[in-house]
Amino acid sequence: MTATRTAGGTEGAEEVIPPSVQTAEKVRWGRWIAAAVVLVVLVQVVLAAAVNENIEWSVVGDYLFDPQVLHGLQTTLLLAVSAEVITIVLGLLLVYARLSSNPLLRGFAGAYVWFFRSVPLIVQILLLGNLALFAPDVSVSIPFTSVVLFSQDTNDLIPAATAAVLALALHDAAYNAEIFRSGIGSVPEGQRRAASALGLTWWQTQRKVVLPQAFPVIIPPAASQFITLLKSTALVSVIAVPDLLTEAQTISNRNARVMELLFVATAWFMVMVAVASLAVRWLERRSATRNRRLATKPVEVVVQP
């Protein structure tokens, strides 16, 4: 055994390799080819758009800051922000219902999440926006009597914009509830037991122990869910809420510049999503530093001279 190894070792003479030898960089042909293909396609698309005589770019510029477009933008932001506020509250209520010991509440929350996640958002918007067809007026009466306490026309009570916010929030809450549930579930049971043993009430335990630890886990998925919500607001144009897309389309119905006004709406959506993403990045970085500060042993910092 030893003999063969020695024999094998001495058989071929070792080539001389200088100690300062370097490893050659591999030429990545695949990468260059892929880049070239992408570039060609990109140039084609940009040229097609830029020199296409059916699209007038100056029109896009003209309408970017058109008062009607800006008004639509404002409506879109308002829809997204109010829906987000409602969805956070509703999502928290749902997740606590889902985690409660009351089987009725648990069942309701489960059914809610299942229903609102299985019906397409656009269908929900249409349903809520057209509620008046189904219930022309809303009234509150005392059961088994003819005493009516309150009655109002549905369309007056729930204007299109409110229906839109409600539809967006109700739908989104189902997703947020799941996001919150995984965040709250990530806090170990021992934390709750320790808090209880110290005499904290349920609410104090949630507020001071559970939610602060769940927060960093919740932020990234909740933020990306908000960005989805922001884009979903465009769907409300189907019930004539004057959002960004609706306003853009109203204008193009007048001047027949369909593509130009769609580009205007696209540009604004891209701006909104970019701003939201930056805000999320900032929040994440902030909670990451907080976590580093609290979750790990002190990092040895090597200072370069």
Binding site: Q191, A194, A195, V209, Q213, A295
Partner: peptide
């Protein structure tokens, strides 16, 4: 398991 609150 001690169960100190890690965020505090």
């Amino acid at each position: 398991q001690f169960n100190l609150f890690p965020h505090l």
